[in-house]
Design a protein around this nucleic acid. Structure first.
Lengths: 342, 342
DNA sequence: ATTAGCACTCGACTTCAATGAGTGCTAACA
DNA sequence: TGTTAGCACTCATTGAAGTCGAGTGCTAAT
């Protein structure tokens, strides 16, 4: 177990390194106000901390740098929750200043503001459409061969699919189909549509429509909803200003990852609600070796809707970022809950 | 005017520099097969070419590098059109292998393949929705306060807007409005909708609906179509591998530009059809100082729809890129024309 | 248990010389 | 008169040698 003094030293090392990005030496530590013992004592303690794996040297005679284990301990036990200043708060609240309709606009604005406030990269996972309930289906023929199917959810989300019209289907068939679909599927969550179609709608279609199975498959095909929610980014290039990314190859692999949305999902789709911190290799991704990812979820009522996240260097301002995410996720949740739970 | 020999030398310098990214010296030039005179002669010619502004030195005793003027001359007069090899052709044609419905998919795939084939960054400007003609309007109430308006075009493109329902409007009003809109606006190009609404629909609404003006403005507001077409990118990080971008600050300003779509539009929205090459500062953009942009348009019939572009270093393989763009834009045009002109 | 003192390490920076790819110029040549 | 060989010169690059200073670990004294 670590002594109080070791904890103090660890905390000051991490704080200082986060601020300066320079390895911290015993002499400069001894000059801090918080610390009242000599550099030699600190050296001894640092040697112990190093042996325990909380800090590292970059070379034999360098100052110390927090290890991933050190950051982890810092985040779990030492980080002093920092109150947001008024300016930050008002900036965040400006997100909700305009009318709230365009869900995506809010999400996008959140991403932008988060990255501006932190100078890191923000990632926001939009609300999953699959929870929403179907409000209405429309099918609009474009010409003899094709039609577009439109699905509107109770939250105002619109999905559409273009598909080939089976040649044997005529206008009245289409109309009947749409009526059946609306009658049977309204109120069903998007993710359950496919199931429901085969279980309940298929039979009805058979009774009313010739070639019902062709129609059925065409529609069921169109209903395959996108598996993933939309991602929004802010400050994609912010990481370029971080001193740890002076190396082009690191930048390259990081930016490449950011530009592959499919690689991002597994990173931010954590299951647990609340704030989540993943440090360096905890992300299981080689491009993230020098990065930490802090995520928070937002919800409507008790139902988790999406995730907001900040991607920064492991040497990130954990305290500030955590406060910001906590604040924003709370705000998002309450605004959305107000909006959709009446 | 330049002599034939000077032209030859200029061409070889540009070709060689494009390949190697190294300043070209007189001795290495004299060893080339195409060149049958001595390095001293070449030095004389190079001095003249430099005086005329076609090539430059990086320092007093370095080899020569093409200037922007040199690239310009090369592109206008010297570039030898290079036939595409079979592999490239078949890769490009694979874009059209699947069914053609999802316009965006094709565009996106084009961007990806262009960047893969060139190792530069590709930018594709999607088809402007504003040319499309309205096929159908639907308005679907979500609850007492809001509704979503859906606009379907003859090409299957779907736009939607959520808006507040004026409290005095009831279901029958809404229905009447939709009927009027469909009756009057079907077949109208999206960009003309706003005009038409005030000129023709306003009067009709007044006759049938109480509070017609509130309704009118609500609808007209929703109709403000996005000013810009969608942009798609491929290989955003490809430029990081180019040796001229070893400098982080250059990378930063370039990537920052790429991530600001609004800065991209003016760059690629050239008016003239066909291939267009903009070299370095011709782009009027400080982030593009060391970059060239090659654009090509694609159309349906005679109507220009969108733009495909490649962004690379000024030291770009002009010949190859031009061929690729020419080929792809021709293919896109013919596929789209077939699809939409029947 | 703490601290002063000291030898030692190592990255960062500077200086210096050597190297070599390039130039411009001049004089000889065809 | 145009071409070329030859030569002096320039300058970025490389690597070796030396200095500096911030840091360490260890020991002995407090």
């Amino acid at each position: 177990m670590l002594t109080d003094r070791q904890l103090l030293i660890l905390q000051v090392i991490v704080d200082d390194f986060i601020r300066s990005a320079q390895p911290v030496g015993s002499r400069s530590l001894s000059k801090k106000d918080e610390i009242s013992f000599s550099s030699a004592t600190i050296r001894n303690e640092m040697a112990d901390l190093e042996e325990l794996g909380y800090i590292e040297k970059t070379h034999t005679s360098s100052g110390r740098v927090p290890s991933e284990k050190g950051y982890r301990y810092y985040v779990d036990h030492l980080v002093s929750p920092q109150a947001l200043n008024k300016q930050d708060i008002s900036i965040i609240q400006s997100i909700f200043a305009e009318k709230i309709f365009e869900f995506e606009k809010i999400i996008q604005k959140s991403a932008k503001i988060l990255s501006d406030l932190t100078n890191y990269t923000s990632i926001v996972l939009g609300p999953a459409a699959s929870f929403n309930k179907l409000k209405r289906i429309q099918i609009i023929p474009l010409n003899k061969e094709s039609a577009v199917a439109i699905f509107v959810t109770d939250s105002g989300h619109v999905e559409n699919r273009t598909f080939y019209l089976p040649p044997t289907v005529d206008a009245s068939d289409l109309e009947k189909t749409v009526n059946i679909l609306n009658e049977r599927l309204t109120g069903v969550a998007l993710e359950d549509l496919n199931d429901k179609i085969y279980k309940e709608v298929a039979m009805l279609l058979r009774q009313h429509i010739r070639n019902y199975d062709l129609m059925l498959h065409t529609i069921a095909d169109s209903l395959k909803m996108p598996a993933n929610e939309k991602l929004f980014f802010g400050g994609k290039t912010n990481m370029l200003s971080q001193p740890e990314f002076h190396d082009i190859s690191k930048i390259r692999s990081l930016l490449q990852m950011i530009d592959h949305e499919e690689w991002i999902y597994p990173l931010i789709k954590n299951d647990s609600a609340g704030i989540n911190v993943k440090i360096g290799r905890e992300n299981n991704n080689s491009a993230m070796e020098n990065c930490s990812l802090i995520t928070a979820t937002y919800s409507v009522g008790a139902e988790k809707l999406g995730t907001i996240a900040i991607l920064g260097p492991t040497r990130m301002e954990y305290s500030r970022v955590i406060s910001l995410l906590q604040f924003l996720s709370k705000d998002l949740t309450s605004v959305l809950t107000n909006l959709y739970q009446k």
